[in-house]
Every structure is written in structure tokens, then in C-alpha cells.
Amino acid sequence: MEPVIISMVSLCRHYEMGDQIVKALDNINMEFRRNDYAAIMGPSGSGKSTLMNIIGCLDTPTSGIYELNGTNVAEMDDDELARVRNREIGFVFQTFNLLPRMNCLRNVELPLIYAGVAPEERHERAEQALLSVGLGDRIQHKPSELSGGQIQRVAIARALVNKPSIILADEPTGNLDTATSHDIMEMFGKLSNEGNTIILITHEEDIARFTHRIIRLRDGRIESDERQ
């Protein structure tokens, strides 16, 4: 068995909306092991985004335990969370979120700057990451000069560059056509085969079918958790 990377025990995330308390996540118990390749599914309002924010350390739970590599994230302050995001998590977003006026290399280097990596090494590692997603010849291009699929691959390179424990992808194919979506999913498949841990959020069945494990959420609770 691979070691446990993420463990959630009776994890809750509540929001106060006036007098009402909205239970975005309600008593979640779940584990992810190294090299998991999982999809989190659910209709809108099911708590996918909240769960993704908590896994990504962009948000902390109201109660319960969220352990990442054996450390309880719930008790961390802002700066420690920033450090965990930088070292442990590689984000891929639906809207890509590249800085538009910087070239691919500079975009991919960004997490390394916040990790305190020296400029030469930064360059080398960013170039490597871009090479591994098949964009070795687009290093100096700006995002506006690339297609949607290429942009998302730059974003994947950025997620990989700091060798995180988890790659967290929020609707990574949401803004792509079917053919490109399948390209991107094949890329995730390849990354999974190379030993990476990948969690992605999607509401498309055919995308989820690329993964090895599908977790369905409804009303802030786990409805099903199946390996395939």
C-alpha cells in the first residue's frame, strides 16, 4: 500500500449567511494515498469547490482534521498555508490563470520564486517542466500566442515545476473542446503513471472516467467513493 498523503476526519466547513448556517461540507471522512488519481464530482452547490479549496489549503475547515503529509493544516496561519501551497500543491485552474504579459518560462518559474530557488536553477527546472508537457519549443511565447490546450499544458508545467505532493486540478477541461480535453486527460494519465498524485474536480462523466477513483458529493456529504 502507498502511504497516506491526505486524511480528513469529520471535516466540516460551515458558512454563516445572515442567521443561517450553510453546511458546505458536512462530516467528510476520506483518505488519499500517494499516486491516487481521483475525480471529485457533483452538481453545483454540492461542496466540490469548498472541498477543493480546503485540499488546496486556500481555506481551512471550520471543524475536523485535515492532515497533509501528517501535519494538521487546520491549525496553520496564513504564511504557513502559503508555504504548504508552494511546496505541496500544484494548482491547475479551469481559467488557466497564466499571467498574460509574461512568457511561458516566466509563468512556470513563478512558484520557484516563492520557494526561494536561485535564478539559474529556476530557469533550468521551468524549461524541464515545459519540455515534459511537450512545449519545449514554446518557451519564449506569451499565453496570447498559444492555443487553449497549449495554455493548459503551460499551467500543468507550472503545477509540476516545484515537485508537489498533489496536483489539484479544478475543472481543467472546462474551457476546452472535446479533442483538446482528451489530450489534456491523456497528459494527466501519463503524469499519474509517472507516480504523481492527482485530484481533479469535474462535472463531466467522460472526463471522470479517465481517472481511477470517482468521489461523488451531494449537499456537502460523500455520496459515493468508487475505484475503477
Binding site: 486556500l58 496564513d78 502559503a82 501551497r85 508552494n86 490563470n97 512558484p111 516563492y114
Partner: peptide, 16 residues
Amino acid sequence: TREIGLRKALGAKRKT
């Protein structure tokens, strides 16, 4: 704002 959010997601601290 989005850029700030992104930089924070990628590991920028408050003081950064």
C-alpha cells in the same frame, strides 16, 4: 485581484 489570488495560491506570502 486575480493575479494576487494566483500568486497567493502559488505560494506568495502576505508580506510578499
